[in-house]
Amino acid sequence: MSAILEVRDLSVSYGAIVALKGVSLSLAEGEIVTLIGANGAGKTTTLRAIMGLVRTAGGEVLYRGAPTRSSKTHQLVRDGLVLVPEGRIVFANLSVQENLEMGAYARRDGGVAADLDRVCALFPRLKERRRQTAGTLSGGEQQMLAIGRAMMSGPKVLLLDEPSLGLAPIVVHAIFEAIREIHRSGVPVLLVEQNANAALRHSDRAYVLETGRVALEGPSAEVAANPKVKEAYLGE
């Protein structure tokens, strides 16, 4: 399988603080890959660097075989590389409907209406609340909106940053179901999670990030069976 997204030896510094020290990972068509690790391990920074939202100090990102260095964030999104950011960041001052429209902002193809139907089918709650401002939604609904909004961008690769953060278990379940559904429709997913249990259960392969480095990688079942991972991340 050839990688649709490949990260090679990526380094990022915030001033004197080194956040990533040469991270390499890849995502192939048809995969769900998860990136787990403790707070501050560099998970969010990895995703932000892939999207061009932080400056990289070294290494490179290849999307569909081409380096992304010269592309701006919004151009990557237009090419189908889409991130659901940490903390959801729905536009609280816009209505649910307008948030979804913003997801499709850059699209010129005719698939927008069909995607809106898909989002509404996947998250009926959003359809009911489409006239409400997004700021009035609950945390779970905001996460649904953030994912729905990303679906409206017509993603060819979907990156998700902590989609389960701060949500009730039943909502977490619904969110993971939605991610599987998007994956089934043919979109490879790179999933960053603190909820290692759920992430490993729902993924093909996993990377464990520790203080800016990949400490362990492999098929999710193997990673989950690793004694160190069990102790540090799965609470067993």
Binding site: M51, L53, K72, T73, H74, V77, R78, V82, L83, P85, I89, V90, F91, A92, N93, L94, E98, E101, M102, G103, Y105, A106, R107, R149, S153
Partner: peptide, 24 residues
């Protein structure tokens, strides 16, 4: 308008707007 809505999106969060494919 589409551009007007994008202006409101940018004023809420520059990064989130970029992630919508909006040229900020």
């Amino acid at each position: 308008t589409r551009t007007g809505k994008a202006m409101r999106a940018v004023s809420f969060s520059l990064d989130a707007a970029k992630l919508m494919g909006i040229s900020t």
